[in-house]
Amino acid sequence: MASFTLTVNNKKRTFSAEPDTPLLWVLRDILGLTGTKYACGKGICGSCTVIVNGKSVRSCAMAIQYIGKDEVLTIEGLSEGADHPIQKAWIAADVPQCGYCQPGFIMSTFDLLSNNPEPSDEEINQALQGNICRCGTYTRIRKAIQIAITETEN
């Protein structure tokens, strides 16, 4: 066990963990932030996407020992009351079915729009093709991203 300090959702969190523990399980089992989901454990489905130092990462495939003092943003840190423009767009488009993969899609979208406020369809495809939605909400995800782009412009 080793001691780590991370800034998660703007709060300093100090905890003990095995150094090889993926960030996903630190968030879920140690810090109680269960909005970030386990689905493949190999970084191939995107359900565990969080933002580390401004970039989206697959938290299931990133050991805590390599993160150090970085800043982590999870779905819980996006807003207080589901009112981040991306979340509002997701609500307006009524995106989720089972909902399990949606935090990952929202965090991938957050990364995309933070770096590229007006992405083309091709850029949206590129940024989101690491995420899987098993229920097939993709059409509405695309619609929600368009709403978020328009809302952010205004």
Partner: peptide, 20 residues
């Protein structure tokens, strides 16, 4: 508006796997 919609986009809806 569907039930749980805001919670689903906030990561706060508890699935079984989230239980502690």
């Amino acid at each position: 508006p569907q039930v749980d919609l805001e919670k689903m986009v906030s990561g706060t809806v508890p699935y079984c796997i989230d239980l502690h």
